[in-house]
Amino acid sequence: MASEKGHSPLDQFVINPIIEIQAGSADLSFTNSSLFMAITVGVVTLLMLIGMRRRALVPGRLQSIAELSYGFISDMIRDNVGPRGRVYFPFVFTMFMFLLMGNLLGMIPYSFTFTSHIVVTFILALVVFIGVTVIGFAANGPKFFKLFIPEGAPIFLLPLLIVIEVISYFVRPISLSLRLFANMMAGHTMLKVFGGFVLVLGVAGVLPILITVALTGLEVVVAILQAYVFTILSCLYLNDAFHPGH
């Protein structure tokens, strides 16, 4: 595909409006990105509803998937946030399933990977960041500022360290979103680049095909891993909100 008319490996990230909606100066069009988010929500909802319909003692495949994902996130919250974090299970679980399914659906040829756009991941990270900050203040009051005061530092270094701590707190949503976005975009670009070599190289194109197969496997791992990393880091930030400077 990449060999026709100079198709760029980055074409796969282009946003196309499907239904154009203009609200004043804001462009609220329903795009291919929105379409795949809607599909993701639909698939996750169906998976959970159908998976939990039978409630068999010995679970079938779908029920296993539903139960395993529940147990995975439930354990993650218990180990990283503690019993008090259980209130936030619905949010964490929804976010994890949304990202996981979005990443995995993006692996299907001709589909669109909405997590490869930093707007999407950054807004998600911002929700986590603002939520955690609000929860932190609600749970600890002014004691929450202890988060920024390192223990056992020499007095003359303290002003500098506090500034650095504050900055490193604000860097969190950026590194959180950047990690997911960069991983997804880099992986998908690489797949397209090697895919483009196949036609150009003729018979020797077998090599890039082999590489593409290997990369596809790697990308599935990355898709799952990055959804996991995003979620576990959110849990750790939540943990900080409950236990600043203990």
């Binding site: 180990d79 990283n80 202890k146 988060l147 920024f148 005061i149 390192p150 223990e151 056992g152 530092a153 020499p154 270094l157 360290l161 701590e165 490193s168 576990i232 750790l236 943990n239 900080d240 236990h243 600043p244 400077g245 203990h246």
Partner: peptide, 20 residues
């Protein structure tokens, strides 16, 4: 890490992620 470099949050827990 020396305590002052851990930030306020992780002072006693270490890094919860690796600790876990």
């Amino acid at each position: 890490l020396p305590t002052w470099a851990r930030g306020g949050r992780l002072s006693k827990l270490g890094n919860p992620e690796t600790a876990r």
